[in-house]
Amino acid sequence: MLDLPAPALFGQLLLGAINGAFYALLSLGLAVIFGLLHVVNFAHGAQYALGAFCAYLLLKFAGVPYWGALILSPLIVGLLGSAFERLFLRRLYDVDNIYQLLLTFSLALIIEGTLRALFGSSGFPYENPLPGGINLGFMFMPYYRAWVVAVSIVLCVATWLVIEKTKLGSYLRAATERPDLVRTFGINVPLMVTVTYGAGAALAAFAGVLAAPIYQVNPGMGANLLIIVFAVVVIGGMGSLMGSVVAGFGLGLLEGLTKLVYPTASSTVIFVVMALVLLLRPAGLAGREVH
């Protein structure tokens, strides 16, 4: 192949894996919400940014360290998300589903606009909780980046296990197919919907806290990422959780490689892949379209 120095290659692959971890976490949250609610959560990027800001504010005003914020911040954003679903989104379930999408979009505008108005657009640094790294011989591996990749893989697998292997997961899957029938068994489906939306928002916030030490904490951090994640979801197919996770990591790596080979295309390569997939396999790689 091309004559590339090994450290540069592995460095870019690591960067790609990190980006991929965020794509995977966010598209997983989108897929979980979409599975049960049939709502594309346009506020997902804003909830990711909100998670990062929560971590930043918790540290600044309450002295809560990174590890505390990693638990607290998703909890706060998850509760806010549940409240939003319970109070507002729920009112739109019996009208055309574009209105649910538009409501989450307007929520994204509100969150992002407010963050921008309060904190400005420039962003804040967040101190790396795991400084240092280890020399692996062929490349230098910072501890924090290794942690990000590892924890996102664990989280993706855990979410998959919960949904595919537990009783709660089986209720969720059943409610996806026939919510009315599941309710006749005495299962509280509306509560499940609220919790699921909250869990999806919490996943986004968790990704936001993970991202804080790597990227800066800034109001626009979610919006651009979300659109890339949409492309990832279109490529992977929204019907499958594994599809979105694998597509997330795979496309992150592909983006990293493109940065090395042909840097100008690195911001568009995922969209090009999306166009190709749409031409060749319109239903996405994982192939099951849910209406």
Binding site: I228, V234, M274, L278, P282
Partner: peptide, 20 residues
């Protein structure tokens, strides 16, 4: 590219292409 897919997929694809 987009008209093959419907509803929310159509929205997401047009948004992604516009971002490209």
């Amino acid at each position: 590219l987009a008209i093959g897919r419907q509803g929310i997929y159509f929205a997401m694809i047009t948004l992604a292409l516009a971002q490209m």
